[in-house]
Computed example of a mutant assay.
Amino acid sequence: MWRRRSSVWANLGCVLLVVAGGALLWLPFHTQFELDDWAAELRARGVPARAVVDDRVTKEGGNRESPSTTMYFRYDLSGRTYEQEVGCVEVCRSAGDEVSIWVNPADPGDFVTDFGQLSGHRGRVQGVLGAVGFGILVLAVPLLLSRVPFRRWFPRRTRRRPVALVRGGGRFTGRSKHKGYGRR
Rank of each mutant, 00 (worst) to 15 (best):
P108Y: 02
V148T: 04
H121C: 07
G170W: 03
T81N: 14
V132K: 07
N104Q: 04
R167H: 12
H121M: 11
P108D: 07
T81L: 10
R124L: 12
Y82E: 14
Y72T: 10
G87V: 00
A164H: 10
G168Q: 04
S94N: 13
R160K: 14
S94F: 02
F150H: 15
G169T: 05
G169I: 06
A106V: 03
S119P: 10
F73C: 09
P162M: 01
F172C: 13
R183E: 08
L143D: 04
F111V: 06
V148A: 04
V125T: 15
V86R: 07
L77N: 01
D110P: 00
G120E: 07
Q84P: 05
V141I: 14
R175C: 00
V128C: 03
F111H: 02
L145S: 06
Q84G: 05
Q84F: 03
R171N: 11
L145W: 03
L77T: 00
V89K: 14
R157G: 13
G180Y: 02
V148E: 12
R93C: 05
P142F: 00
V148I: 09
W153F: 04
S78I: 04
P108T: 03
V91E: 11
E83A: 08
G174H: 06
T81M: 13
A131E: 02
Q117H: 12
P162N: 05
T81V: 12
L118E: 11
H178A: 09
R156P: 09
P108E: 04
G96P: 06
V132T: 09
P149Y: 02
V138L: 15
R80A: 09
R160E: 14
R122T: 04
L77G: 02
R156A: 12
I136S: 04
K179Q: 07
L145M: 06
L143A: 11
V166G: 08
P149F: 01
G96Y: 01
D114C: 03
D97F: 00
A106G: 04
R156I: 03
G109F: 05
V86W: 00
D114G: 11
R151F: 03
